[in-house]
């Protein structure tokens, strides 16, 4: 169960990173901070109405991704667009963004981890063990979101425009696509997905200003293994890494799980640099 929750949350987070890289060709090192912001804002929104934890959480689930998406749009306009989305320059810029977000949260929110009450509290009891029913809620919500994103990308006009921009931004522009607007929307969408993952996971692991680092590392591992521009690969790799992380952490140690995941990345980079589902460089 731990592994399944990790897998779904990781799939959401990594999908955001993969979208941003796939369409914008940007390696967003600050992606984990959007996850952290989602969790911290969830704490903030639920703290507004502590007597109504369910509605507080619902408010957080809606408002936190919107706030984080707005921060992403501002970061796009102030930083990425000015760098003309140059791959090398934006890596450095997003490292800077990572520290700005992290230190801002430390200043405003403090160094302590804060708990958020799960909106639904029940236990699923099986003959040999039991677990929190909220984990099923996380899995269900994440699965719905993944299906929604897949539908949006493959079946809607925005998805078509996004994929066309991903393949050839110059030609897309010659067909009336406002590329910079698409980039801003994709960056916001990627950030919002990470924020939703942060909101969903915060009742299970508390909000903390350094909590973005692990999801960032795991998302990079997932995106590299799955293939840098493959959404299908991202989701499949998230399940491989998420489940193995959960199982190895449970029966051995979390450190060993990270070592094996990193080793898997090294092996993929050596034998299949484009990732399991990625296309060779165009």
């Amino acid at each position: 169960m731990e592994g399944t929750v990790t897998a779904f949350v990781l799939a959401l987070t990594a999908l955001g990173l993969s979208l941003v890289f796939g369409v914008m060709r940007i390696v967003n090192v600050a992606h984990g901070e959007f996850f952290m912001l989602g969790a911290v804002l969830a704490w903030g929104f639920t703290a507004l109405i502590p007597e109504l934890p369910f509605w507080g959480f619902m408010l957080a689930l809606l408002a936190a991704p919107v706030c984080v998406a707005a921060i992403a749009v501002i970061a796009d306009a102030l930083v990425l667009r000015r760098l003309n989305y140059e791959p090398e320059a934006t890596i450095v810029a997003t490292i800077g963004l990572l520290y700005i977000l992290q230190q801002s949260v430390l200043t405003l929110y403090g160094p302590n981890a804060q708990p958020v009450v799960a909106p639904i509290s029940f236990r699923v009891v099986l003959p040999w063990f039991g677990y929190s029913g909220y984990k099923l809620v996380v899995i269900g919500a994440a699965a719905l979101l993944l299906i929604g994103v897949w539908y949006a990308i493959t079946r809607t006009k925005f998805g078509l425009v996004m994929r066309a921009t991903q393949f050839d931004r110059e030609t897309a522009q010659a067909f009336g696509v406002p590329v910079k607007l698409v980039y801003a929307a994709v960056f916001a969408l990627g950030a919002a997905l990470a924020a939703i993952a942060g909101v969903l996971v915060v009742p299970l692991q508390q909000a903390h200003y350094l909590m973005g680092l692990d999801p960032l590392l795991l998302s990079f591992i997932v995106v590299i293994i799955g293939g840098l521009d493959s959404l299908k690969g991202t989701v499949v790799a998230a399940f491989i890494i998420g489940l193995s992380d959960g199982i190895i952490s449970m029966f051995f140690s979390p450190t060993l799980a990270k070592i094996i995941a990193t080793l898997a990345v090294a092996l993929v980079l050596v034998w299949r640099p484009q990732g399991l589902f990625g296309a060779r460089a165009r």
């Binding site: 078509l160 066309a164 897309a172 009336g176």
Partner: peptide
């Protein structure tokens, strides 16, 4: 079809 749709979307 999707390539044609890109042309149609513009106008």
């Amino acid at each position: 079809e999707e390539n044609l749709q890109m042309g149609l979307l513009a106008r």
